[in-house]
């Protein structure tokens, strides 16, 4: 078989993967290899494929992902710490035809914003929640969070989390799945190419569930903080 030059492949071949136009040219501030950047890219790709750039409203949260409005070219509202589901409720009720989703970390959703999350899911608001769970407070130096698994070493639990001393971890998805208002729930991870593809599929299904009005859609994405790894 005849060999083809690389330039010919670029010119005549099909594009397998390219940077989605929804991602802005801004340089992401995340550490090298951060899972947040991967999830940003997945969200942008799904919005692009569903043609929702003009119809999506994202609610940003506080944490490492606080500058998400710089990176994805859609409408954004920056909520107070933990209050993204409450803001999303208002936005969705005022704009029922728009896709409204929140992008939150575990310190935001499962610690300070637990009440807002549970009540939004219990009411069955037609919003999508992208929940990136890295099990620690990554931005402030890797301290133990409510979601930290037992035995995991963090900067404030150098011997590992001990249930007698620090209590048990909070599994927010196990809590939420008992609520009738939740229409879609998935837990995915983004550590391998295959898992990245399934995570993207879950984000797409969550957005479709939210648009169809079937209740709150929650996608928990298990991530890891590479900088604060012990």
């Amino acid at each position: 078989m005849k060999r083809t030059s690389t330039d010919t492949i670029r010119r005549e071949g099909r594009v397998v993967h390219r940077r989605t136009p929804l991602l802005t040219d801004a340089h992401m501030h995340y550490c090298p290899g951060c899972n947040h950047a991967t999830v940003h890219r997945l969200v942008a790709e799904v919005l692009d494929e569903m043609g929702l750039q003009a119809d999506a409203i994202g609610i940003g949260s506080v944490g490492c992902s606080v500058f998400i409005y710089n990176y994805i070219d859609i409408d954004w509202i920056q909520a107070s710490h933990g209050r993204a589901p409450a803001v999303a409720t208002a936005v969705k009720r005022l704009n029922p035809s728009r896709l409204v989703f929140t992008y939150q970390g575990d310190g935001d959703l499962a610690a300070i914003g637990t009440a807002e999350t549970i009540h939004a899911c219990n009411r069955g608001e037609n919003i999508a929640i992208i929940y990136v769970n890295n099990s620690i407070y990554g931005m402030t130096g890797g301290q133990m969070a409510p979601t930290t698994p037992l035995g995991m070493r963090t900067s404030t639990t150098p011997q590992g989390r001990d249930a007698r001393l620090h209590g048990y971890p909070l599994d927010i998805c196990r809590l939420l799945r008992r609520l009738s208002g939740v229409g879609f729930m998935a837990r995915r991870r983004v550590d391998t190419p295959r898992h990245i593809r399934t995570a993207k599929q879950a984000i797409r299904e969550a957005f479709e569930c939210s648009l169809a009005g079937r209740g709150t859609a929650v996608v928990e994405i298990m991530a890891e903080c590479l900088t604060n790894k012990f």
Partner: peptide, 25 residues
Amino acid sequence: RPRDCIGCGTCATVCPDGCITCYRK
């Protein structure tokens, strides 16, 4: 080793910052 590239797109799938464009013949 550009000659070895099979154009599978795995590199672009895992790239967090979306730096990679992948082509296949």
